[in-house]
Structures are given as structure tokens and as C-alpha cells.
Amino acid sequence: MNSSVIVFPGSNCDRDIAVALEKMQFKNQMVWHKETSLPKSDLIVIPGGFSYGDYLRSGAIAGKSLIIKEVIKAANDGCLVLGICNGFQILTETGLLKGALLRNKNLKFINKDTNIKVINNNTKFTNKYKKDQILKINIAHNEGNYFTNPDHLKELNDENLIAFKYCDDKGNLDEDANPNGSLKNISGIFNSKKNILGMMPHPERMIDNLISNTDGVNLFSSILN
């Protein structure tokens, strides 16, 4: 399977995701933001980091970059698109995913391993997980507080478009388990066709027991499945 990782000035998880993809046997290419065409890709990843130093709003400038037009075109043609952390922020700024990521409620940059629950496991990104499975995945962000309007929240629920929610280690979805104030503990969502996933947690950091755990592996094996 061919994957492309988009690299912006200020991206800093691009090499981590490349290592994860290659470990999972993807044939990966890095694509600089000034490119005007994409290599043949089954999966496009927009990595985490601080594209353009988070100037204006997180993801706002990257959302208008040259390569993004091609990403939008490919996404509309059904290509799988995964946005992690800043990548999720960029996807909301492009309009490929609805809603926005606000400043964390406690105004702090949060870097910690958090529990998330798999809400919809019937997608190209999550089919190797069990429904309601609890994963421990690292988060590292300042703007991860997901916000959307009531109509879209209804759509997310009715169409089963919520991928993951923050939970405690028993799977409870209460306010105490919500690290950043995110609406309904949401930590990852799909678009209506479910070929785009945006998530704040970093699955690419959870692929090796030597440095963390392997809870992120099944996201990549789901895509390969």
C-alpha cells in the first residue's frame, strides 16, 4: 500500500509517522508542502507538529498551502486521509472535517498518555480494534478541545462518525477523563464517507513496546486490512 506524508515547515511528527508506516510495510513517500501534485497514494497522512508555528490559528496557514488542494481533491475521490494532532487541526481548517479545535480548557499544553475508547470499529481505520476497546495513546497538544455546532454533533452521533472518545481506565466517559474540555470527550472523528479520520492522540507513538506500547499498531493494520 502506498502512503504519503505531507511535510510543512514546523511539522515535527512527520518522521515518527514515516517510521510507523514503514514498520507496517507501507511504501511511504514524504511530500513537501510546496509540491503541486501527489504521488500515487492509498493513504495520505497529515502529521502532528506546529505547522507555520501555529501562526494565526493552529492549522490555518497549512490549510491554505499548495499541496492541500491536491489532498482535498484526493480525499473527495475517496483516498484515505489521516490527520493526527496538528493534522486534525489542518483538516478542520480545510473543511474536510467539520468543527474546530480550541485552546485546551485549562490553558495548558498537555503531554501525557491518555485512555481513549474505540467508538466506531466498523471503518477502514479501526476495523482491527474491538468496539469499546480501551487504548492508551499519547496526546501532546495545546489546542485539542474539539468544538462543533449542535447540528453537526447530532450528525456525528446519528451517523456513527465518532472514532474515539477520552475515557478513564475503566472506560467511563466522564468529565474527569476529559483532558482538554473536548465536546462529549471526543478525541477523533470521521467525515460522512468515513475515508477521513482526524484524531488528537498519536497512534504513531504507540507501535513499539521498547518505547511505549503497541496500542497504535491496529490503526495501521486496519488500513492495510
Binding site: 494565526l56 490555518a60 491554505k64 478542520t92 467539520k98 468543527g99 474546530a100 468544538f147 462543533t148 455546532n149
Partner: peptide
């Protein structure tokens, strides 16, 4: 509309 403000928020 295009860049300076995110009209969702």
C-alpha cells in the same frame, strides 16, 4: 472569510 477568521468559532 477566507483566512483571518474561522467562522465556526
Amino acid at each position: 472569510k477566507k483566512l483571518l477568521a474561522n467562522l465556526i468559532i
